[in-house]
C-alpha cells in the first residue's frame, strides 16, 4: 500500500478531507452535516495517513493518552452543553440560539449551543476512531 503514488495522493487529499470535515462540522446546524459525519471525515483523513505512512508518522502509540482525553473531553463538552440547557431554565438538551452581529463583515451570524454539542461529538468520534485504529493496527 505504501507506494509512492498512494503517498503523494495522501499528501494532497488528506488536508482537503480535513478542511471539508471542518466545513461539514460548521454548517451542520441548518444544513446536512454535523459532528458525527465531520468526525468520520477527519478520521478518514487520518486513516489515509496511517495507511500511507504507518503509525510512526504521528507516533500514535505514544499519543494514545491524548486521544483518550480527546474522547473524554468531547464527551464532557457535549454533556455539559446538554446540562447547560437545564441551568438556563429549560430542560436537558434545551438548545439556545444567539444572533451576533459580526464585526467588519456586518452580517448577523447565528450561534447555537447545539454547535458546541456538535463539536463535542466531533471530538468523540475522532478520538474513538483513532483509538480503534491503533488498537486494530497494533498487532502487525
Amino acid at each position: 500500500m505504501t507506494s509512492l503514488i498512494f503517498k503523494s495522493i495522501t499528501k494532497t487529499v488528506s488536508p482537503i478531507l480535513m478542511i471539508f470535515s471542518l466545513y461539514l462540522l460548521l454548517r451542520g446546524h441548518q444544513m446536512p452535516g454535523g459532528g458525527f459525519i465531520a468526525g468520520l471525515m477527519t478520521s478518514a483523513g487520518l486513516v489515509l495517513i496511517y495507511l500511507a505512512y504507518g503509525c510512526d508518522f504521528f507516533d500514535w502509540h505514544k499519543r494514545s493518552r491524548f486521544f483518550y482525553y480527546l474522547f473524554s473531553g468531547g464527551l464532557a463538552l457535549s454533556f455539559l452543553t446538554g446540562l447547560a440547557g437545564l441551568f438556563i431554565g429549560g430542560t436537558f438538551l434545551k438548545s439556545g440560539v444567539a444572533h451576533v452581529e459580526m464585526p467588519f463583515i456586518h452580517e448577523s451570524w447565528e450561534f447555537a449551543s447545539a454547535g458546541i454539542f456538535d463539536i463535542g461529538v466531533y471530538l468523540v468520534v475522532c478520538g474513538v476512531c483513532v483509538s480503534l485504529m491503533t488498537l486494530l493496527g497494533e498487532e502487525e
Binding site: F36, V128, L132, L135, L136, E139
Partner: peptide
C-alpha cells in the same frame, strides 16, 4: 452510529 460502533467492536473481537 450505533450500528457502526457495535460492528467495530465486533470486528475487534473477531480479530
Amino acid at each position: 452510529v450505533i450500528g457502526f460502533a457495535a460492528l467495530a467492536f465486533l470486528l475487534v473481537l473477531a480479530i
